[in-house]
Design a protein around this nucleic acid. Structure first.
Lengths: 226, 226
DNA sequence: CAGAATCTTGAATATTTCTTGACCAAGCCT
DNA sequence: AGGCTTGGTCAAGAAATATTCAAGATTCTG
C-alpha cells in the first residue's frame, strides 16, 4: 500500500469534485474521479482505491446501488455524500454499511478531516505532501525542514512561521499575523517575531539558503520565490 | 459599500434580535430583521445586506437552508449563530459555508467584533487582485511592484502613493490628499510628496516605465492611463 | 527535580526611510 | 524678456524601524 492513499471521488458536479480534489491533494492524497454510477464501479474495480467518497445523486444508477456493488466485492471504506437530510434517514435505515456520512453543503476541510478519520480507523495514515521550493523542503508530517541533503534543525515556532510563509509565497504578513499562526495562545509582544525570524534566517543561511525571507519595512515579512 | 454597512439579523427570539440591533447600531451599522427562513431569503434578495447574522434554529426552514439559498445567488458574508456546540461541526471549515460562527450564549460585543472582522476580511479580498496598467503590476497582498519581469523596490510610502494613483486613474490629487493616503499620521510638510514622488518616478523610469505620473501645475499629480 | 531547550524581553546597534531646506529649473504672467 | 510662482533635485540630519545579542522566564524532558 502506497504512502499516499488513493481516494475515489464519485461526484457529478465538476465544481464540487474539483474542490474536493484540490483539498485532498493538498493533504497528500491521490485522487481518481468518476461522475456516474457505472464508471464508479468499474473504476473501483480497476484502481482499487483506499477510500471512496460517494455522492448519492449521480446519473446512471445512484449511490446506494454503487455502494452495494462495491461491497459485494470489497470492504473498501466508503463515505456517502448527500444533498438532503432526508437521504440521510434513508441511508441510515438501509444499514448498508457506509463508514461515514457528509451532508451538503459541506466544508471541504471537514470532508478531508473525515477521510482521515476513517482511514485512521481502518489503520492507514494520511501522508502529508512535503512543501518544496528549490532546495528547501518542508515535511508537515515530520515537522522537519531540509535544504538539499542537510537537515535544518528548527524549533516548532520557526517551523510554523516558515510553513505559513511557504504556503503563501510572496505575500507580506504582519508580525501580528505571524504571531497568530506560530504562537496562537501567546500574548507576547509582536517583536518576538523578529527574534524567531532572525534565528530562522541564520539557520537557513547556514544550510545554504540565504535571503529567502525579505523584510518589508513598515509592514512585515514575506517569503520571496523567484 | 456604504459607510454604514447593512446587517441582516435573522433571529426568531425578539429579545436577542433587539440586543444585537442595539449594539450594531451603536457602532454605526444599519440593520434589518427577519424572524424566519423564508422572510430571511426574500429580505436578503430585496435589501442586499453587506452581511447576514444567521441563527441556525429558526422557523420555516433552518439556517443551513437559508445559507444555501443565499449562496445560490450571492456571496454575501454570513455569520452563523448556533445554540449548540454540536452544530459547530457542520459549520467548521468556513470555506464552503459560513464566514464565521458564534455560539450562544454570546456577548453582543463579541458579535460586533466578529462582524467587523469579517467585513474587514471581505473588504481586503476585494483589494486582493493585482492592479495592472500595461506592464506595471501592483500586488496588494505581496505589497510589491513590478514592471514586466523586473521588480521595482519601493518603500512603503512610495507603494501607497502608487497604489492610490492606480486605483483612481486620471484623477488629480493634491499633495494633501496623497499625504493623507501615504502617511496618515505624519505632520510633515506637503512638499515631502514631491520628494517621494521624485524617488518613485526615478525608480519607475529605471524599470522602463517613465512619465506615467504627470504633474498638474498648481494642483497636484495624477497617473495618466490612456 | 534538574537540566535542556525554547521563548520572551529589553537594550544596544545597525539600517532604512522620511523630512527638511537650499538651490536650480521650468512654467506663467504682465 | 524679466520677475514671480511652482515644481524638481539633492544631500544631510532626524526619525522610525529592524536586527542582534544576551540574560531571564518558561516549558519540556528525562
Amino acid at each position: 500500500m502506497n504512502a499516499h492513499p488513493l481516494v475515489l471521488i464519485v461526484e457529478d458536479e465538476p465544481d464540487i469534485a474539483d474542490l474536493l480534489e484540490a483539498y485532498l491533494r493538498r493533504d497528500g492524497f491521490r485522487t481518481e474521479r468518476a461522475s456516474d454510477g457505472s464508471s464508479a464501479v468499474s473504476l473501483h474495480r480497476v484502481a482499487r482505491p483506499d477510500l471512496v467518497l460517494l455522492d448519492v445523486n449521480i446519473p446512471d444508477f445512484d449511490g446506494f446501488e454503487v455502494l452495494q456493488k462495491i461491497r459485494a466485492s470489497a470492504q473498501t471504506p466508503v463515505i456517502m455524500v448527500t444533498a438532503m437530510a432526508e437521504d440521510l434517514d434513508k441511508l441510515l435505515g438501509l444499514k448498508l454499511g457506509a463508514d461515514d456520512y457528509v451532508v451538503k453543503p459541506f466544508s471541504p476541510l471537514e470532508v478531508v478531516a473525515r477521510v482521515k478519520a476513517v482511514l485512521r480507523r481502518v489503520g492507514m495514515q494520511a501522508a502529508a505532501q512535503p512543501l518544496r521550493f528549490a532546495d528547501l523542503e518542508l515535511d508537515p508530517l515530520a515537522v522537519r525542514v531540509r535544504v538539499g541533503n542537510t537537515r535544518v534543525d528548527t524549533t516548532l515556532t520557526e517551523y510554523r512561521i516558515l510553513e505559513h510563509l511557504l504556503r503563501h509565497p510572496n505575500r507580506t504578513f504582519t508580525r501580528g499575523e505571524l504571531l497568530d499562526v506560530a504562537l496562537p495562545e501567546s500574548d507576547a509582544l509582536e517583536r518576538v517575531i523578529d527574534t524567531h525570524l532572525g534565528n530562522l534566517r541564520k539557520k537557513l543561511e547556514q544550510a545554504g539558503m540565504p535571503d529567502i525571507i525579505e523584510t518589508v519595512r513598515g509592514m512585515g515579512f514575506r517569503l520571496c520565490l523567484e
